[in-house]
Design a binder for these strands. Structure first.
Lengths: 202, 202
DNA sequence: TCCAGATAGAACCGATCGGTTCGATGTGAA
DNA sequence: TTCACATCGAACCGATCGGTTCTATCTGGA
C-alpha cells in the first residue's frame, strides 16, 4: 500500500523488467513520436523509475534502439508467418501479406510503420540503420516470393512489390485510406502475373 | 558595419521578408526535422530576429503550417509541369513523373517528402491535414493520367500509382535506393498497360 | 517633416528536457 | 545470515525549449 522501492511479494527479474519496458515504451513512443514525450512521462506510463530505465538502457537513444530492433524482429516474423500460413502458392502468399497489412492499418492507433517513422524523426544512427535493415528484410521476403513464383527477374519484382508495401503503409496513414492495402494487393498480383514467365499451373 | 536593427540602405518589405523566411525555414526544418532545431537557431540561420518571426507567423506551429503549405503548392505545381512537358501520351507523362522523382531522390540532402515527414513527426493538425491534401493532389494528377490513358477504372489505377509514388520516396530515403524511382516507373507502366482496356494507338 | 511600423539584438521568462544521485526498502543467491 | 543488487520516489542538475518584452534604429508613406 505504502510506496516502497521494491514491493513485498514482487519477483525481482531484470530480464523480464527490461522486456516489459521495451514493450510499453515501444507502444508509447509509437503513439507519441520519439520527441513527443519526455522520459519522465514514459517512466510513469511504464510504472518504473528513471533510474531503472537508465540502468537498463543507458540513454533515451539506447532505449529507442532496443525498441526499434525488437519491433523490427517482431514485424518481420509476423509477415513471414502470414506468408507461410497462406500455403505454397506465391500469389496467395502475396495476397495474404497485403490482407494482413490491411488489418493492421485498420487497428485503432495505427500510425504507420514505427521503424520508418523513427528514421524519419531521427535520420541518424541507429534509427537509420535499423530502418534500412528493416526494409531489407521486407525486400527479402518479397523477393523470395517472387522467385518462387518463377519471376523473370525476382529481385526487380521484389523491389517493385516493396514499393507497394511501403506506399500502402504511407497512404493508409497520411491519406487516411486503410483500403490502400487492397489496392496494393491487386497491384502486386498484377505485377506478379506480368513478371512471371510462365503460369506454373499444371 | 555596426549592428543596427534596420541596416541603412535595406528595403523594408514585410511580404518579401516573410517569403524569405518561409524559404529558408523550409530548407532548415526539412534538413533538421521539426523537432531537431530550436527557434533561436532557425532565426540565426535565416538572419532574422525572433521578434520578426513571431510577428509574421505567431508561433512555431504557424511557421510550420506556412512552410508546409508553400512546399505542397510548389511540389504539386512541379509534378504537374513535369507531366505537361512530357507531351500528350499518358505513358510518357507517367514515365516523366517518376524520372523527375528519381532526379530528386539523387539530390544531396534528400530526406523524403517534407510534408509526409512533417505529418509523421506531428501527426496532428495542421501537418496531418496538409499531408492528406498533399497526397490527394498527387492522387488527382495520377488519376487524371490514368483516365486519359483510357483506364477501365481510373480512380483505382490512380490509387495504385500513388502507392508506387509514395513507396518509391520512402524506399529511396530509408533503404538508400534512389533507383526506386526506376522500379516505380516500370511498375507504373506495367499497371497502366494492364489497366487499360484498349491501346489507343491508331 | 513626421510618425507608424519593421527590424535587430539581447535580456528575460517559466517549463521541460535528458540525465544523475541518493536514501530507503525489498529480493535472491551465496 | 549476509550482502550484492534491483527498484522506487524524489530531489537535483545544466541546458534548451518556445515565447515575450525591451530598446535602439532605420524605412516608407502620409
Amino acid at each position: 500500500m505504502c510506496r516502497v522501492p521494491v514491493p513485498k511479494g514482487s519477483s525481482l527479474n531484470p530480464d523480464r523488467t527490461r522486456a516489459a519496458i521495451v514493450r510499453v515504451a515501444g507502444d508509447f513512443l509509437y503513439a507519441r513520436g520519439l520527441d513527443g514525450a519526455g522520459i519522465a512521462e514514459l517512466c510513469a506510463e511504464a510504472g518504473i523509475s528513471k533510474e531503472t530505465l537508465y540502468r537498463h538502457f543507458g540513454s533515451k537513444e539506447g532505449l529507442i534502439r532496443a525498441v526499434l530492433e525488437a519491433r523490427s524482429d517482431r514485424v518481420t516474423r509476423w509477415l513471414a508467418q502470414v506468408a507461410a500460413d497462406a500455403g505454397d502458392e506465391p500469389a496467395d502468399q502475396l495476397a495474404a501479406v497485403f490482407d494482413a497489412l490491411g488489418r493492421w492499418y485498420r487497428e485503432p492507433g495505427f500510425r504507420g510503420c514505427a521503424i520508418v517513422n523513427a528514421a524519419t524523426q531521427r535520420h541518424t544512427t541507429p534509427a537509420n540503420e535499423i530502418a534500412t535493415r528493416h526494409l531489407g528484410r521486407h525486400l527479402d521476403l518479397l523477393t523470395t516470393i517472387a522467385a518462387r513464383a518463377g519471376a523473370a527477374d525476382p529481385t526487380a519484382l521484389g523491389r517493385r512489390l516493396l514499393l507497394l508495401l511501403e506506399g500502402a503503409t504511407v497512404v493508409a496513414d497520411h491519406l487516411g485510406a486503410p483500403g490502400s492495402a487492397d489496392d496494393a494487393r491487386e497491384a502486386a498480383l498484377t505485377l506478379l502475373k506480368c513478371g512471371t514467365q510462365t503460369a506454373h499451373s499444371p
